[in-house]
Design a protein around this nucleic acid. Structure first.
Length: 262
DNA sequence: ATGGCCATCGCGGATGGA
């Protein structure tokens, strides 16, 4: 089975690319759950019928202009949660659901972490509060759901290996010690960075700036992640970043991350 | 080189992204 995450930077613009990508993936095994971020549309504009026609269920949490997240899946979502319980938030950034029953039930959390803009800014402070709230709730979720995956656009790099220019970008947004400590605190709850469970080529990134020929020069960051619990780690067999959609006309600035489980 | 590109809203140019 496959789990995937993709920040598509407007589902209105890139729905055809998402459907084409799901089709392509299905050639060597369908994607069971795809987490999407940055829908940039309201709930009433979500293209549920298009996904249904393609054979997928969906559950979504939209917002006008900004943010918005969804889970697209082969089986229906159960026990859906929108945003972090107990954390008042105007922004649609998180959606969680359970797939399957009993001991094989899988809990999936799709999230669009705040960008944070710059250390010291109000948006950075919001990012830190959001991360605190996520950690508190996630600890409970892990107790309830041993088979759990947290995936999405984290807007945080783990370390210098996730950064095209570690010296030039030291302690800038996505690369600060404070953000990385928060990311490690999520790992400390009992999660694993699926990407690093397997050998990866150096300079493997998931996002490239639209400007300065960022993708062509591979000037990128790895900020899109799939974190999995111990129970899922035991079943993980591959984790890859698919650069192909970044070469599409009108691409998202992010590439999808795909985890394969036995 | 303190911007470059892209999407949104809405019809010019600001805002946000990362």
């Amino acid at each position: 089975m496959k789990l995937a995450t993709w920040n598509i930077n407007s589902l209105g613009v890139r729905l055809p690319q998402v459907l084409a990508w799901l089709d392509r993936q299905a050639q060597d095994g369908p994607v069971d759950v795809l987490a999407l971020q940055e829908l940039k549309l309201t709930d009433d504009k979500f293209p549920a019928a298009a996904f249904e026609q393609a054979g997928y269920h969906a559950t979504w949490f939209g917002q006008k202009t900004y943010n918005g997240v969804a889970l697209v899946s082969r089986t229906p979502a159960q026990d859906v949660v929108r945003n972090i319980p107990g954390f008042a938030d105007e922004q649609a950034r998180l959606i969680a659901a359970t797939y399957g029953e009993g001991e094989t039930a899988l809990r999936v959390i799709g999230a669009y972490f705040p960008n944070g803009q710059a250390p010291g800014s109000d948006k950075f402070a919001y990012k830190m509060r959001w991360l605190d709230a996520l950690r508190g709730w996630l600890a409970d979720e892990l107790r309830r759901h041993p088979r759990l995956a947290l995936m999405g656009d984290f807007n945080i790099t783990f370390d210098d290996a996730d950064v095209w220019d570690p010296e030039g970008l030291r302690e800038t947004i996505h690369c600060t010690s404070e953000e990385r400590a928060h990311l490690q605190a999520l790992i400390a709850l009992g999660l694993h960075d699926a990407h690093r469970l397997f050998p990866q080529p150096p300079k493997t990134f998931s996002w490239w700036d639209y400007r300065m020929l960022g993708f062509q020069k591979n000037r990128g960051l790895r900020i899109d992640h799939i974190l999995i619990s111990d129970a899922l780690r035991a079943r993980a067999s591959a984790c890859t970043i698919d650069r192909a959609p970044r070469k599409n006309p009108q691409p998202s600035d992010h590439a999808p991350v795909v985890l394969t489980l036995d």
